[in-house]
Design a protein around this nucleic acid. Structure first.
Lengths: 339, 339
DNA sequence: TCTTCTGATGAAAGCGCTTTCAGTAAACGT
DNA sequence: ACGTTTACTGAAAGCGCTTTCATCAGAAGA
């Protein structure tokens, strides 16, 4: 039964009766106004307006097979990165009349599968996911659904994707430090399980070091939860080593900022005694002190493009298999030539 | 027409046929399994499983009048505060099988009305909104829809609300500074238009100052966009005055952190030459240096409770008209007794 | 033994909309 | 002037599910 306390809602047929037309005409007034005579259209609109008619989304979705809803599944909303991407997505989608249905999996592939199932069940018209690594179940679900899917940050060459070159980001960070004469470089990475972005960034940094004849031994890599506290803890571990690194790379800016704080707490001057480089270029990163050297990632852009791509796919327009957005080193004060 | 490339989806009737039962039975197997004999239930479940059946949300929503979807409209997702609240909401909702449909209005009452309309049209079962101030249109829409609505951060004594005492937050910040001997205190607030949280915080601070026989003249209050840059700019304006304040209150922590940065950039020591207090207690605030004195706001809790309350309202359970969560002063290093 | 429940299931009527298919009237072409 | 488009509108068949209502065993009570 129709739920709740609400007054009986005005429906299509009410508008039709009021305007003296058929239901079909009212429906067209909403979805394809160009098919109606200006006269009829005006009449229907007036009735709809006056009665306060609001189309029933469920009924529309059922009848048309389109829900005007896009799903997004991110690790968590509570992260500057994903929050920004989602805000950008949502804003772009809203312009086309789409709404965003969000879910988070907090690092659990099983939860992601669950979320995909839930969103699929809700009849979303498209789906945005983060990263390319996931449970085979999830991929199967996605494939058989035939739904437009856009991967973000990392692609798998299979699904459409809006990505950045995470390995390059890691590489740029490392090369910058190498260029400054650093030889013992440590890295704080997010837990690598189910996080291909962090793996790629780490791999990129490692490759750059290798090419310079340097190593990034496992002892100089620490995995941490993706929080400021994680960054501080990771930094502490690295600085407590006998062969203390002279420079640190944060797999995300949040880590790098954590390093800044930890170094500060220890009375260790950055960049004089320690160089720090992040990846992401958060708003905050320009404002901490010293300003954080980092690799800029066009986070908002990823969200915009994911939305646009999804809309294009829904409209059966051709889209690029994978769109790789540029990343770029942003040098600020937190890194300097090794004394 | 059913959309897209997808293989014809398995539907309820397919499962029914496969299990040798009626559609009604399959429906019950999903929604009210206790009504079926264990035997039948198992058979239906097996069929559903084997066929990979996924109920069609639109059809369910249409037939049952419930969409298992909750809407949330926030100023922006791209804010640590709202991101955290939404994450908490989403997590709580997911446990009850609800999904979160989000929209943002970016400070525009008209956009909020639009968003409410869109979400109402999508048949959400409940709605979370931020603040109590909005366009009359919006309120009317909400009222006539009869939908469960929960306001957050600020209530209006009319709709159900999960709030904090924003005025008290402002007061606590101000009283702390007064207690430390500060007499010239400035405040950076978010634009007060369509932001009752900021207005209340400002009013609370002002009241506390008045009670101490101090004034908060308009010249010592600057309105800024809710960003770090806004905080820095506001701080700069205040510090450039001849009657430079000895202490600053940030209407949000982000502002206060901006103050820290601006002071640092000017070589002005905090707290030696300037005390700074924020409101929110972001994760970051504990980690900046000096650690930010602030008023803790249980942001995640607001999200959790909003979700729980909405679920309770949907189930026609009684809920508190307004639940006011406690705020609390957290003293760190950024504030000190006036020399 | 006969009625009255109780528990499990099915038949069928929608939920409010979209969309095909027809149909009508006006505009056009020759 | 007459067939042929063209422009607009309506009738009706669903979309896939939920939910009343009815049915029918079998259990329980008299």
């Amino acid at each position: 039964m129709r739920g709740g306390v609400s007054v009986a809602r005005v429906k299509l047929s009410d508008v039709a009766r009021d305007a003296g037309v058929s239901a079909a005409t009212v429906s067209r007034a909403i979805a394809q106004p160009e098919l109606l005579s200006p006269d009829t259209l005006a009449r229907v609109r007036a009735s709809a307006q006056r009665l306060g008619y609001l189309p029933d989304g469920a009924a529309r979705a059922l009848a048309s097979g389109r829900s005007l809803t896009i799903g997004a599944i991110v690790p968590t909303l509570d992260s500057a990165i994903f929050a920004r991407a989602l805000q950008a997505m949502q804003a772009t989608l809203a312009q086309s009349g789409y709404l965003l249905l969000v879910a988070s999996h907090e690092g659990s592939p099983a939860a992601e599968t669950q979320a995909v199932r839930a969103l699929l069940g809700r009849g979303v018209d498209g789906l945005m996911l983060v990263g390319a690594e996931r449970a085979p179940d999830t991929t199967a679900l996605l494939k058989t659904s035939g739904l437009p899917v856009v991967l973000t940050w990392c692609g798998d060459g299979h699904f459409t994707a809006i990505t950045i070159d995470n390995a390059l980001a890691g590489r740029l960070a490392a090369e910058h430090l190498i260029r400054l004469g650093h030889r013992r470089i440590g890295m704080i990475a997010g837990h690598l399980q189910f996080n291909d972005r962090q793996r790629a960034r780490l791999a990129g940094a490692r490759a750059a070091l290798a090419e310079a004849g340097l190593a990034l031994p496992d002892t100089l890599v620490v995995e941490q939860a993706l929080t400021l506290a994680g960054g501080r803890a990771g930094c502490a571990m690295l600085l407590d080593r006998d062969d203390r690194p002279t420079a640190l790379i944060g797999g995300i800016d949040v880590f790098a900022i954590g390093c800044l704080e930890e170094a500060h707490a220890r009375g260790m001057a950055v960049p004089d005694h320690l160089s720090v480089v992040g990846i992401d270029n958060l708003d905050m990163s320009a404002h901490v002190s010293p300003g954080l050297t980092t690799v800029h990632v066009p986070t908002g852009r990823i969200g915009n493009l994911a939305a646009q791509t999804l809309i294009a796919m829904i409209a059966h327009q051709p889209v690029d298999r994978e769109r790789v957005l540029p990343v770029e080193l942003v040098v600020r004060r937190s890194s300097q030539r090794l004394a």
